[in-house]
Deep mutational scan, measured.
Amino acid sequence: AGSTTLRAVGKLQVRLATKTEPKKLEKYLQKLSALPMTADILAETGIRKTVKRLRKHQHVGDFARDLAARWKKLVLVD
């Protein structure tokens, strides 16, 4: 499952970095939220930084902030 999640995170990371349409960004964040994330995947992909960049986004900022905070707890636990 780890390598599958890693690939999925990579694809979503590229999309988050290149797309600007709020509905698409929200969809990608929801998909990321549903993935079985680990501290290793967060470290290897840097996805948390990508998501943190969206914290001030008018439409998806709250979602991005919550997701980044949830992942921060995951990193602190591991």
Rank of each mutant, 00 (worst) to 15 (best):
L54M: 04
D62R: 05
V9Y: 03
E21I: 04
L54V: 02
G10P: 15
K24T: 13
T38L: 01
K11P: 01
L74C: 05
I41W: 01
P22A: 09
R65M: 08
K24P: 01
T20Y: 04
K27E: 15
I41N: 00
H59F: 11
T50Y: 05
D40A: 14
G10D: 13
T4I: 11
H57E: 05
Q30V: 04
A64K: 00
D40L: 15
G61Y: 01
L25Q: 03
R65W: 06
A69R: 06
V14G: 06
T38F: 02
L42N: 00
A43W: 08
K52M: 13
T4P: 11
R65I: 08
I41K: 04
V14H: 09
R7K: 12
D78E: 10
L54G: 01
R15G: 15
K52E: 15
L16Y: 00
R65P: 03
L42R: 01
A17V: 10
L16I: 12
V14W: 07
G2Q: 10
G46E: 05
L54W: 03
K19T: 15
R53N: 14
A43I: 14
R70N: 03
A69Q: 10
L12Y: 07
F63I: 13
A39W: 10
L74A: 05
D40T: 11
D62T: 06
G46F: 01
T18R: 07
K72M: 06
F63H: 10
L76H: 11
K24S: 12
A43R: 09
L35V: 06
R55C: 15
K19W: 14
E21A: 09
A68R: 01
T4N: 12
F63Y: 06
G61I: 01
K72Q: 06
A1T: 13
E44Q: 09
W71V: 03
L29V: 06
I41D: 04
V9E: 07
P36D: 11
A43E: 13
K11I: 14
L76Y: 09
K72W: 00
A17I: 10
T5H: 04
I47D: 01
T18C: 05
V51S: 00
Q30W: 04
R65F: 02
T18H: 10
Q30P: 03
M37H: 03
L76Q: 12
A39K: 06
A69F: 06
K49Y: 12
K56F: 12
L74N: 07
R70D: 04
K56E: 15
L29A: 00
P36C: 07
L74M: 09
Q58Y: 12
T50C: 07
E21D: 13
W71A: 01
Q30N: 10
Q58W: 14
T5M: 11
D40Q: 13
A64Q: 01
K19S: 15
T5C: 10
K73V: 06
A34H: 07
T5F: 11
K56M: 14
G61P: 00
R53G: 14
G2P: 11
K27F: 12
I41C: 06
R53A: 15
R7D: 15
R48Q: 12
A17H: 08
A68V: 10
E44S: 06
D40N: 08
R15N: 14
R53V: 11
L12D: 05
A64D: 01
L6P: 04
V77G: 14
E44V: 07
I41T: 04
Q30I: 07
A43G: 04
K56G: 14
S33A: 12
A1R: 05
L67P: 03
K49F: 13
W71F: 13
S33T: 07
P22W: 13
V51C: 00
L35M: 09
L67C: 03
W71K: 00
L32E: 00
Y28H: 06
E26I: 05
R55H: 08
K19C: 15
K73H: 07
A17S: 13
Q13R: 07
V14F: 03
T45M: 05
K73D: 12
L54I: 02
Y28E: 03
E21S: 10
K56V: 11
G46R: 05
V60H: 03
V51E: 03
A64N: 00
L29T: 00
R15E: 15
T18I: 06
Q58S: 12
G61R: 02
A69G: 06
T4V: 09
P36L: 06
H59W: 14
V75A: 09
R7C: 08
K31A: 14
A64C: 10
R55V: 15
K24D: 15
K31C: 12
A43L: 10
V77I: 06
K56Q: 14
Y28M: 09
R53E: 15
G61Q: 00
L35K: 00
K31Q: 14
H57I: 12
R48N: 07
T20E: 11
M37S: 03
